[in-house]
């Protein structure tokens, strides 16, 4: 059993951010997560370039997949929440977010690879990008003063205004952080869980005995099931990230109505 502590430590060490090469270009270095991030980037670009060649009026093959994905994000998500005109205008941003997060999450499910989104630097960065973008949209559409005034709902008495304003500001600044942490925690914890089930299987195979064999088989079955669950979580988290982005953009666009 002392083994287990070591193995868990090892697992955690493997999953933490590690530099790949020993040279640094200034403070810059490729880490294990960034490596897979770049692989996912290349994969997304290749996927889209290849499938846009296969588009036809009657959908078939890869073109069908890409069309289904784009239709899902645009018609089911953007247009649904933002309305037809705004939905089409902001679709490229939301689409990029969805597909990049999706490919990163899914890439991490290949055994031996890591999800690029499994580290807090990446996800919180994207969260901050979303934050800047949606505030930018709000300010561009409504003018800076109206937008900031919209934080306070119009009917509040004068005494409560500073308090509510503060609360709103805090909640707004929490948004990128929660976006980032939600995605990061889901991916990181998923990998840890898969790793722990693997450790269980390994340990139960080391000192073989009936009890441990049963545990081993159970752990293996659980691991397979959890792997499938992780696929679902990958897609779901990409979807949630995108839909929250859309909802924030919608709130910013309609700020003048508060």
């Amino acid at each position: 059993m002392e083994n287990m502590g070591h193995m868990v430590e090892e697992l955690l060490h493997e999953l933490s951010v590690l530099p790949l090469f020993s040279e640094h270009i200034g403070t810059f270095t490729l880490t294990n997560y960034t490596f897979f991030l770049l692989i996912a980037l290349a994969l997304t670009i290749v996927f889209f370039l290849v499938s846009t060649r296969r588009l036809s009026l009657v959908p078939k093959g890869l073109g069908n997949v890409v069309e289904a994905g784009v239709s899902f994000v645009r018609d089911g998500l953007c247009v649904d929440i933002l309305g037809s005109e705004n939905g089409r205008k902001y679709f490229p941003f939301i689409g990029t977010i969805f597909f990049f997060v999706l490919f990163n999450n899914l890439l991490g499910l290949i055994p031996g690879s890591l999800p690029g989104t499994g580290t807090i630097g990446v996800t919180v960065t994207w969260g901050i990008v979303v934050f800047l973008v949606y505030n930018g949209i709000g300010i561009k559409k409504n003018g800076p003063l109206t937008y900031i005034k919209s934080f306070v709902p119009s009917g509040t008495p004068l005494l409560l205004m500073p308090l509510i304003f503060l609360l709103e500001i805090v909640s707004h600044f929490l948004r990128p952080i929660t976006l980032g942490i939600r995605l990061y925690a889901n991916m990181y914890a998923g990998h840890i869980m898969l790793g722990i089930f693997t450790i269980l299987v390994t340990i139960s195979l080391e000192h073989l005995s009936p009890g441990s064999a049963v545990t081993g088989v159970l752990a293996f079955v659980m691991r397979v099931i959890m792997h499938g669950f992780e696929v679902f979580v990958a897609v779901l988290q990409a979807y949630i990230f995108s839909i929250l982005t859309t909802v924030y953009i919608n709130g910013a666009l309609h700020a003048s109505e508060h």
């Binding site: 955690l12 929660t178 942490i181 939600r182 990061y184 925690a185 889901n186 990181y188 914890a189 840890i192 779901l236 988290q237 979807y239 949630i240 839909i243």
Partner: peptide, 24 residues
């Protein structure tokens, strides 16, 4: 339901991740 599920689960996972951070 899935959207609400994802958001609620995130809070639970925050605790999970914090546990591992504290362990290290």
């Amino acid at each position: 339901m899935f959207i609400a599920l994802g958001m609620t689960e995130a809070i639970a996972l925050l605790g999970f991740v914090l546990a591992f951070v504290l362990m290290g």
